[in-house]
Design a protein around this nucleic acid. Structure first.
Lengths: 346, 346
DNA sequence: TTGTAAGCGTTATCAT
DNA sequence: ATGATAACGCTTACAA
């Protein structure tokens, strides 16, 4: 019992395959009666169009490729979700690849995804090899880098400067009177956004002349809550007099906060703790965590809308100043330093 | 400037397209010299095979479809990650669809995914409409349900009984002397695994004659930490004398714990709190949260290996008692009740 | 080991 | 409004 195909439906409806194809595409040039008949037969027979054949013929795969370090990070999960939802409205599907924060995985992954002929590629961050850049350029499709603000972008950008975020947080701590800051970060983080935040920390501490640059790298990305807990005693041993710890991301910061409580260190009077990302736990814990909030869903939606424009799936309203196609877009996403209980007020 | 295709490579190498195809597939029947020449040309020209054309011809899409409620849940993110990794080794890609915990989204999503001709479908949980079941059955491909233990499975199963898990947790509380239990769950959770856990709670409370069944449904799934915090005062108002709260999942339980601390209620002496899932925060917080641990990565890997067997991508070692093809597999995943600080010891 | 021919199931294009 | 025909770029099946 063969799988039913478009030609079968056409035969049963007494029309040509082309008419079935049109009826399925809501092509206006099919009479209502004919369409009704065709849709009836499709329902009866349970016909499922073969999108593979359709893609080959139309040269539109209906795919967008997305490369993320990991889905096991609420930020990227949110962005992925929002992007996929936005694109789904136009019938586009999102093909996801994970690098596991390992740059060397990027190239083969990209090569595999490109064989699917995606109509665009979306990449988190900026750690791309020359080979990867070449693959992307040669593919001749829109490329969007998200979640950072690369100095030499490949194509379009939807994000913000992780370095500036870190600079801003150091300033904030300095303004609140903290003087002996330490940074809790990750090892082997080349090309990650965390590495950019570390750079920002270093730059700001130097600019503000806050004394020695104290960097403690605990583990490969992503740092976990428990690794944050483990880090605090080690950091206090290295630098007994620090009065603030800035962490590459919230989970680590929450770990530091928890361990401080376990050790009887008062936060924020004895030690300030500041994170990044505004994870859910940061809003819920006691005291709530000072952090920088980023709207991951917004990044996904903006990226999705940009792509719909670029690929010509969007409604053509007058606001489509975006869709000039060639010039690469730079969409800045606002982030918000959010003071809470783990740093003292003014 | 056209995109280069296999015929172009063939011409440049002085062979037929078929030989290029074989060289790419590591088909043994290509002389080493020829293969070298071909691969050289491919590298020079930057040729990227078109998998769409390949799939149409070979009738193997190289896709697996995965339906999850949300990726914004570390469990599903882990499972997805592990599944995708396992399949990637065989060159299979994972197409992900999100239902957002809304059952009505499942059908159109499934229909869309099936047009891509996936070689198998993996579904979380068990809330499937008759129409969905029919679509799946008609597709004639392996179906795997994961993360639960459906009474009437569609195909294969890799999971555990969420109902039994809840029963077990109630028993645990009862053994520790807790008598007035309340359940914190979700509204509109038809077909979710949370609903199964609520059932388990109800059943166990009745069986153990623990008095009235106290159910508090706070919000649509998934319950958040902050919603857990908001729920505690409401629950205490409804039932001032409860001595234990069992929560549909860890984030809500962490919220309850945090709010209890904010209200000056001692956990576990005045109130026990127990969750589900062993999320990271549950291991890190103070006191650490009693919960049931599930290895989401394991579910993904087991599912992946099962599929590789079923689809004939696996190495044929003698251990392939699985691969008889027709009979549907039931792979039980062990879960572990993990006593920690939010319940008192024996 | 390599090549030839015939599809795979749809859609673009041009005709009617 | 509908149809005929020729791609789309690869792989299967067979032949040499």
């Amino acid at each position: 019992m063969r799988r039913i195909k478009m030609a079968d439906v056409a035969r049963l409806a007494g029309v040509s395959a082309m008419t079935v194809s049109r009826a399925l595409k809501r092509d206006s040039s099919v009479s209502p009666a004919t369409r009704r008949r065709i849709l009836g037969i499709i329902k009866e027979t349970g016909y499922v169009p073969d999108q593979i054949a359709g893609s080959l013929s139309s040269k539109r795969s209906g795919f967008i490729a997305l490369l993320v370090p990991s889905l096991n990070n609420p930020h990227f999960a949110e962005t992925t979700h929002a992007l996929a939802d936005t694109l789904q409205a136009a019938g586009l599907q999102t093909l996801i690849g994970y690098t596991n924060y390992e740059t060397r995985r990027e190239e083969p992954l990209l090569a595999a995804l490109l064989q699917r002929r995606p109509e665009a590629v979306v990449l988190v961050s900026d750690g791309h090899s020359a080979k990867s850049r070449e693959l992307l350029l040669k593919a001749g499709i829109p490329v969007v880098q998200i979640w950072d603000w690369p100095s030499r972008p490949i194509g379009h950008v939807v994000g913000f400067s992780n370095e500036d975020v870190a600079v801003n947080m150091v300033r904030y701590l300095a303004e609140r009177g903290y003087r002996r800051l330490a940074y809790l970060g990750e090892i082997n983080d080349q090309g990650t956004r965390g590495a950019r935040r570390r750079q920002g920390f270093v730059r700001a501490v130097k600019e503000l002349k806050l004394g020695p640059v104290r960097l403690h790298d605990q583990c490969p990305p992503p740092i976990s809550m428990l690794q944050g807990r483990a880090a605090l005693p080690q950091m206090l041993k290295r630098w007994p007099d620090i009065d603030a710890i800035m962490c590459v991301s919230d989970p680590g910061a929450f770990g530091v906060l928890t361990e401080a409580q376990a050790m009887g260190i008062d936060v924020p009077s004895q030690l300030a703790v500041i994170g990044f990302g505004d994870f859910e736990v940061s809003r819920c814990c006691l005291p709530a965590l000072t952090t920088t909030a980023v709207d991951g869903g917004r990044i996904g939606r903006e990226t999705g809308m940009l792509l719909l424009n670029l690929l010509g799936y969007a409604e053509q309203d007058e606001s489509s100043d975006i869709s000039d196609g060639k010039t690469s877009q730079r969409i800045k996403i606002e982030v918000h330093l959010t003071p809470r209980g783990t740093t003292r007020g003014d």
